[in-house]
Every structure is written in structure tokens, then in C-alpha cells.
Amino acid sequence: MRPLRLLLFLPFLLCALAGPAAADEGPERFIRELAAEVLPQLTDPSIPLDRRRAQFREVLNRDFDLDKIGKLVLGRHWRRAAPAKREEFRTLLEDYLSGLYARRFEDLAGLAITVDGIREFQGWSMVYTTATRANGTPVLLDWRVDRKDGGYAITDLVIEGVSMVIAQREEFSAIVVEAGGLDGLLIKLRMRIAG
């Protein structure tokens, strides 16, 4: 009886053993491809700001998960917001981020990214990389990668230990609290995008 009963456990055992070994390499490959193919386009110094902004918007919609980022960045204010407000916020966030980062990519020509490692968490992974700028300063740059539409999408960037989502969320939260509601933040975002 004993051996048979052991056999029953075999599949579980195998699964448990195989789990860590067969770690999902998808997120790492996703970031590698992004660094090799998408990043050089975004940081190409010869393209004008308008085009860069449009390009980044495309990348933002394809390789990032803006719905999730919006949710993470608004935190509790997201949970309280009406669906229409959420939709409005998501649109504004897209405009805001594409403007902000398009400008930042201007100075990043020649950025080289090497993957340091990867860790999996519940439902998402962290791809740890080191980004070396043209002038040689290495920067620790970590990508939070979630699943999206059967593929992968970035949901946060952690630069030298600083999560952009957390920084943005504290900022947004401070504005919502000060203005006494989400509308205050939406107005401020709209002004920033227009200005």
C-alpha cells in the first residue's frame, strides 16, 4: 500500500520541484526586447519632441498597462471614484505621462540596459536591470511587469529604489486631499497638459 500511496503524491512533488526551475522567462525577454528595439527609437536624439511624444504614447498603450497604473497611482481614490471619472483620469494620465517622459527621453540617447535578474511575485514579476548612460553612470532600474492580454506590460519603474508609482501616488494623493476631491487633481492635470 505504501508505495502506491507515494505514487499519488508524485505529481504534486514533481510540480513543486518543477515550479521554481521552470520560472517564467517571459517578463525578462519582454524587457530585453523592449530595451533592444523600442528604447533606441525613443531616445534617438534626431527626432523632434512632437514625434517622440506620439511614439511614447504608442509605447505607453502597448507595453505599459495604463489601466493598472492608474489604479495603483490613485489608490484609495480610485476605489471611490465613479467610472466616468476613472475614464477621464486615465485619459489625462496618458497625456501627462507621454508629455513628461517624452522630454526625459531626450537626454537618454545611448542608454544601455543589462538584466541583473528577475523575481516573481504573486501575479507579477520584477525584472532587475542596470541602465548605463552615455556618460557612464550606472543606474539601478527595475521594471515591474504584469500580464496583459496574454502578453506582458510594465506597471511600474523603480529607479535606484524609488518607485515611480509610489512617488506619483503620494503626489496625486496630496493634491486630492488638499483640493478635497478627485476633481482638483483632474483640473491640475488638465492645466499641466495644456501648459
Binding site: E160, V162, I166, A167, E170, E178
Partner: peptide
């Protein structure tokens, strides 16, 4: 130039940086 609430942004930056260090 780019932050919407510079105070809150710097606060988040400092605390995260410190926790990281």
C-alpha cells in the same frame, strides 16, 4: 518643473531612497 506637488514628491523620494539605502 515637472512635479504637481513638489513637497509630496520630494517626501516620497526621500523616504523611498532611505528605505532602499
Amino acid at each position: 518643473e515637472n512635479s504637481l506637488d513638489y513637497y509630496a514628491f520630494i517626501r516620497a523620494l526621500y523616504r523611498q531612497r532611505r528605505a532602499f539605502e
